[in-house]
Simulated assay, not measured.
Amino acid sequence: MTTTADPRVAEQEPRARFRDLVAAEWAKLWSLRSTAWAFVLGALAVLAFNVGTAYDTHRYWSERNDAGRAEFIRAGIPLQEAFTTNGVLVYMLAVGAIGALPIVGEYGTGLIRTTFTVVPDRRAVMAAKVSVITAVTTVFGAAVASSSFLFTQAILSVHDAGIPLSHPGAARAVVASALLAPVCALAGMALGALIRHSATTMVTVFAVLLLLPTVVTDRRPWSAALSHTLPLRAWDRLAQPGGAPDLHPWTAAGAWTVYGVWALAAAAIAVTAVQRRDQ
């Protein structure tokens, strides 16, 4: 007696487990030498701006009078030198570009076709990319922010001008600077998923993260409201409390909310943007 297989029963390939997708994205991220170099050069550039500023203060400290030295800490300048504006601009651009690379790189080489052929669930693939880049840039941000604070305050402490992490606003500045990295990286990945072209994506990352905050001002309520929704201005509210007061001030809770909304919205765009579009 022979039996025939039911033609309605087809052997199916098992679905890829999410942890396997994460492992694959991790391997792809570090398979290029440019990834490690981007992190190293980005960190060195940020530290060069911040540590260089602190060193200049150390070098010319003797030119300050007693009143100027007392005002230095009272005005919050040690925190401003730990996280300078130039340093944070380079920082945001670097992590924004790093966040875009995993997606625009695959589209540029055509490897994305192979990826989606092997794993047809595009949203799962993109969710794995989001998970990996979020984890990596969070660690990177924490390392850069803490190193910048420690190095600059060590230099300033030679003249008793440094502040400890327990100083009011210091811990918040370090955390805000650290978390700015995954926020900008996810924004870069979302733009990469929408644009899919390396050069255009990088220009757009620069325009959205760095150029747009210079266009809007706090002179009018509607412009100030738009300004407060941008990551750079949110970081400025959290990390630079000693700066010039705004005409339309924003709360620290509102600034943290901006961080969360940008991260969640960027992750959602990155995951869903590839679902209904051709490769």
Rank of each mutant, 00 (worst) to 15 (best):
A38K: 02
A239H: 10
L232N: 07
T200S: 14
D278S: 07
D20F: 06
T217W: 06
T229E: 15
G110R: 03
G87S: 14
D218Y: 06
W262G: 04
R17E: 15
V119Q: 07
G105V: 04
V51L: 04
V132R: 00
V216M: 15
D20L: 09
Q12G: 08
V9Y: 08
S146F: 01
Q240N: 11
L111E: 10
A268L: 14
R196A: 05
W262R: 06
I133K: 00
P231V: 04
V95T: 07
P182E: 03
L232E: 09
V175E: 01
K129H: 12
I133R: 07
F72L: 05
T152G: 00
I103N: 00
N65M: 10
A127T: 14
A173W: 00
T201K: 00
V95Q: 01
R113T: 14
A225T: 12
Y91W: 13
W26Y: 07
A127R: 07
V104D: 00
S198V: 12
L41S: 13
L101T: 12
H228F: 02
M92L: 12
G42H: 11
V130S: 05
N65Y: 12
F151D: 01
E81L: 10
A161G: 08
L156G: 00
P231F: 04
L209F: 12
S157T: 15
G42T: 06
I163M: 00
A255R: 03
S198D: 03
L212Y: 14
L230F: 06
A142W: 04
V208T: 15
H167L: 02
R64I: 10
G260T: 13
S223G: 14
V205L: 02
S148V: 07
F72C: 08
G42L: 05
A82V: 02
L191M: 09
A207D: 12
T251A: 08
A266L: 08
T3Y: 04
A100Q: 02
T109H: 12
V158C: 06
R15M: 13
Y55W: 15
R59S: 13
V125K: 01
L180V: 12
P14V: 11
A43H: 07
R122H: 11
W256S: 08
A48M: 13
A48C: 13
V205M: 02
S34K: 13
W235L: 14
A234I: 13
F151A: 13
K28D: 12
V183T: 11
A43G: 15
R59C: 03
A45K: 07
F151T: 09
